Simulated assay, not measured.
Amino acid sequence: MRETTTVRPKPLLRPVRPAGWWFDALLLAVFVALTGALAGGLLLDLDLTVSAWAFDHDPAPLYWTARVFNLLGQGGWLLMPVSGALALAVAWRRHSVRPLLFVAGAFLLTTLTIGPLKLWTDRAAPTASVKEPFLAPEEAVEIFNRLPAGAYSMSYPSGHVANAIVWYGVIAALLVAFTAGRLPVAAYRLVRFAPPAILLVTTTYLNFHWLTDGLAALALGLLLDRILHRVRWDDVPLPGWLREWDRPFTSYP
């Protein structure tokens, strides 16, 4: 009698590091706790102190250097176009639409979370004290403010930082796929981690965001990044007419 073997079903989600859901819960707890602390009036003095120091220490060479590096966080004409171009290149090389699904997933995930949170928290940027609506710093720093909709009432969390964590993770993963896994580890880590760190510093120094905007964005961005990379993009169901372009996409280590 032939012995039958059982085939283990493939896990629905990919493992991420650190493994398990405890780190996701920790990141969410940090974001909620930080938001609650700001709503209760805590940490506002810290934000005001850091902002005042940045306003008082902005010599032109340092200021414009920070402005140039801050361009790393431009989503509309840098992050998404670069990600889209890389996804198309990998899709053509692999003859698979799955890299495009990866980019679409990142777009949906960031659009449905970061923007609505900014609208909900209604926090002005530090520069709202020197530009319209010319708020006093003590008023601009408040979260859950009652401000008119506009460019200076969507500061929390920092979209530059949160988007950078997600999109540079996508770019790094696509570079791994494009190079067929031959991308040096040092280059992968540089693309993955350097831009978010630079943007945390530059957006705070330039007074585009309060310090706590960036810290909250770190927690949120890491959480979104883990969610995105948990998905097994090779196993997402596709319609039959895409059968010729339904090939595995193993773009991330």
Rank of each mutant, 00 (worst) to 15 (best):
R2P: 12
T5Q: 15
P11Y: 10
P15I: 02
R17L: 15
P18K: 06
A19T: 13
W21V: 07
F23Y: 14
F23A: 14
A29S: 12
V30F: 04
V32D: 06
L34F: 08
T35C: 09
G36A: 14
G41I: 06
L42N: 09
L42G: 12
L43Q: 03
L46D: 00
D47S: 01
A52M: 08
A54V: 06
H57R: 14
P61N: 10
R67C: 10
N70M: 02
N70A: 09
L71C: 04
L72A: 10
G73A: 03
Q74E: 14
G76A: 12
L79N: 05
V82Q: 05
A85I: 15
A87I: 13
A87E: 05
L88T: 00
F102I: 07
T111Y: 09
T113Y: 05
T113R: 04
K118P: 00
K118N: 07
D122Y: 02
P126G: 05
P126R: 01
T127Q: 12
E132I: 06
P133G: 04
P137S: 01
V141L: 01
V141E: 01
E142V: 07
E142Q: 13
F144I: 04
G150A: 09
P157Y: 14
H160P: 09
A162K: 00
A162V: 00
I165L: 15
V166P: 02
V166K: 03
V166D: 03
I171L: 08
I171C: 07
I171W: 07
A177Y: 01
F178S: 05
F178H: 07
P184R: 08
Y188L: 10
A197G: 05
I198F: 04
Y205F: 15
Y205T: 14
F208V: 13
F208D: 13
T212D: 02
A216Q: 03
L222E: 07
L224N: 00
D225P: 02
D225V: 02
D225C: 11
I227Q: 09
I227V: 15
H229I: 08
D234R: 15
P237D: 03
L238T: 12
P239I: 13
P239D: 10
G240T: 12
D246I: 03
